[in-house]
């Protein structure tokens, strides 16, 4: 009898603890079907291939040449094509939402992979500059409006903020080689990221 009483009490306790169990799969179905917001981003071939800097002869020949220490505003290889347009661009298609697009380098320009080793030489990433424009001609994007890169995604200098329709953004990149830089091949990883409007990268 006593055991029966305890069972009844336990049953009541279980009933009180019982919650609505059916929400998980309903949520996944509803959220997937009801969603009408999306975006996609395209990068140009030359941008996907990476950004390589060259001297004034190289930019005309589309060939990478060693850069002189102390030289400034060295162009990226495809800053100017044969019609003096840039080949670096991204296209964003945004439907029923807003997005922001940021970019940045993972680390400084380094001579060794991942910037490690006693023989690693570094060029500070602020020596790389970028400029953007909605138009693409010999003057735009312009060196006058260029800004230096920083490490990580630069939320202070986003590529664009609050984009709510389709757009093509064009870029040019330049590199200053500090005096006294050692002769080497320098690399970093460049990333472009899109986030839903209102959020930081």
């Amino acid at each position: 009898m006593n055991l029966n009483k305890i069972s009844v009490v336990f049953l009541i306790f279980l009933l009180l603890l019982r919650t609505n169990e059916s929400s998980d799969f309903v949520a996944i179905m509803n959220s997937s079907i009801s969603s009408t917001s999306f975006y996609y981003i395209q990068t140009s071939n030359k941008l996907s291939d990476g950004i390589f800097f060259t001297n004034s002869s190289g930019v005309l020949e589309k060939k990478q040449y060693p850069l002189q220490p102390g030289s400034s505003n060295n162009n990226a290889l495809w800053n100017y094509n044969t019609t003096f347009n840039t080949e670096y661009w991204i296209y964003a298609f945004v439907y029923n939402t807003e997005i922001s697009i940021c970019h940045g380098a993972v680390h400084h320009l380094c001579s060794n992979p991942n910037c490690v080793g006693p023989d690693n030489y570094i060029i500070d990433i602020s020596n790389v500059k970028w400029s953007k424009s909605f138009s693409n001609d010999v003057n735009n994007p312009s060196l006058q409006e260029a800004r230096p890169f920083s490490i990580g995604f630069d939320n202070q200098n986003k590529i664009i903020e609050g984009l709510n329709s389709e757009a093509t953004l064009y870029f040019r990149y330049w590199l200053d080689v500090p005096p006294g830089s050692s002769a080497s091949v320098y690399n970093t990883t460049y990333q472009i990221m899109a986030v839903v409007g209102g959020y930081d990268c």
């Binding site: 919650t19 929400s23 998980d24 799969f25 949520a27 996944i28 959220s31 997937s32 969603s35 917001s37 999306f38 975006y39 996609y40 981003i41 395209q42 990068t43 140009s44 071939n45 030359k46 941008l47 996907s48 291939d49 296209y91 298609f93 939402t97 839903v196």
Partner: peptide, 29 residues
């Protein structure tokens, strides 16, 4: 083009009760 990637849904919410698992699907195109 170089590379293209699209995504949805974009800004969803969830609630996970004790000892439960919330399943969600993102879609890429």
């Amino acid at each position: 083009y170089g590379s293209t990637i699209g995504i949805f849904p974009l800004n969803e919410t969830f609630v996970v009760k004790p000892f439960k698992t919330y399943n969600f699907a993102f879609y890429l195109f």
